[in-house]
Design a protein around this nucleic acid. Sequence first.
DNA 1: CTCAACGCCTGACGGC
DNA 2: TGCCGTCAGGCGTTGA
Length: 293
Amino acid sequence: MPELPEVETTRRKIEPLLRGRVIAGVEHDAPHKYRDTHLAVGRRVQGLSRRGKYLMLQLAAADAAEGGAHDLEFIVHLGMTGGFRLEPGQHTRVTLTLESDETGDGQHLFFNDPRRFGKMAVVRPGEYAGMPTLAAMGPEPLSEDFNAADFVRLAREAGAVKPWLLSQKPVSGVGNIYADESLWQGQIHPAQTRLTPGEGKKLYTAIREVMEKAVEAGGSSLGGGVGNYRQHDGVSGLFQHEHHVYGKGGQPCPRCGTDIVKTVLAQRGTHFCPKCQVLRERFKGQTVQRSNR
DNA sequence: CTCAACGCCTGACGGC
DNA sequence: TGCCGTCAGGCGTTGA
């Protein structure tokens, strides 16, 4: 579920609960999903960072200087339905116990994940063997590393643009919602291949704008369903009110009034405006992208 | 190498 | 009311 804006919102909200604290225990079953978590016990959280949709807790020895170098990373991926909670519940999969600080607050942090798609691992910094998506992660969309020239150049060679975005390689953190929203904003058909420089630039600008606004809004919280995304404090994001196409199949396009189409592309629900986002003619001999299921 | 399909999980919802 | 099929914000693996 959570994409970059939701993960970034989580990072900002749980960092104050974890920074400076020593992890006293990590409890869970399914060790194949939560690898080497015992290495985190007795270590101090120096800070929280994020790469794409992955959260990283920087861990150092409990007696290390504040702000000093860390020697382990506690990596958390929220999957489709993962999130932190202050109270245990039916879907608690991991319980983090913290050593008391002066205030004694926040002894536990619970990882709630109904669908169990979330994962954790403790690794040496930068050692991402077995995490191919993280190892090959593209630039952060809101950083200077994400630049138009590189993106336009890569986009000229790309296959179907939406699956290409979802691969995390051209840019990190874009998932199904923000891919659909960015393609609508940039007026590009989700199945378009080999973007022209003009299309590439429009999509680049759209991704920056959509991601920036979504982070500002605290991400999206969809009503109902397993994945209703909330932060640990129960606060919902607000960006769902700014969706133009995601979840809007059959409703009028805010730009032209044509009914938004919902289809399936690369096994993912895909929403677009058939008038604003037109698939360019293909050259003879090329096969047509299908969306069977 | 890339690409597409499938597996992993649970719960909510709509149709019958 | 109950059952069944479908769908869901992701990613790792497999096999072509």
